[in-house]
């Protein structure tokens, strides 16, 4: 039997985000500002996945994120898993957690909100007992997490 080939090359040191639903991949890329990275980034798109059908994966060499940066990802993918790699080995596995407050990440859905009309950062609080919505700090508009749009940077 033929040995299975790895579709995405391993990295020596850095961060791997696996099991990204494919439709969310580019939102994750934007949120982490991967276009501004200078080290090697490997992106696998529409790979086979038993759980998700199609999944995506991002491997970032020599890149480590702060908790704050990673937790922002929970806005678009609440169940992401991250692997921290040192010397080709997974040294830590982490899941993201939605922070109570989000500043400058999510766009307010209300066109009459001050944040859509002034050069300023948006600010949201997690809303509801199930933590599945965000409430605008300024205009009180409530957005379901599934409908979230990120600010353009």
């Amino acid at each position: 039997m033929k040995e299975k080939q790895l579709l995405v090359a391993a990295i020596e040191n850095g961060t791997v985000i696996d099991h990204i639903p494919s439709e969310k991949l580019f939102a994750v890329v934007n949120l982490l500002h991967l276009d501004r990275m200078t080290s090697a980034v490997t992106i696998g798109y529409n790979l086979e996945s038993k759980e998700l059908g199609k999944k995506s994966i991002i491997k970032m060499a020599d890149k480590f994120f702060t908790d704050e940066e990673l937790n922002q990802l929970a806005v678009i993918c609440p169940n992401l898993t991250l692997c921290i790699i040192h010397d080709y080995e997974i040294t830590e596995k982490r899941t993201v957690a939605l922070p109570d407050e989000l500043k400058g990440i999510v766009k307010c859905a209300n066109p009459k909100c001050i944040t859509n009309n002034e050069p300023m950062k948006t600010h949201f609080h997690v809303h509801g007992n199930e933590r599945n919505a965000l409430k605008c700090h300024y205009c009180n508009t409530i957005i379901q997490l599934d409908d979230v749009q990120l600010v353009e940077k």
Binding site: N110, K112, C113, I114, T115, N117, E118, M120, C136, H137, Y138, C139, N140, T141
Partner: peptide, 10 residues
């Protein structure tokens, strides 16, 4: 008084 929502908080 402002026509935009959240203007006073800001």
């Amino acid at each position: 008084r402002h026509y935009l929502e959240g203007a006073a908080r800001y």
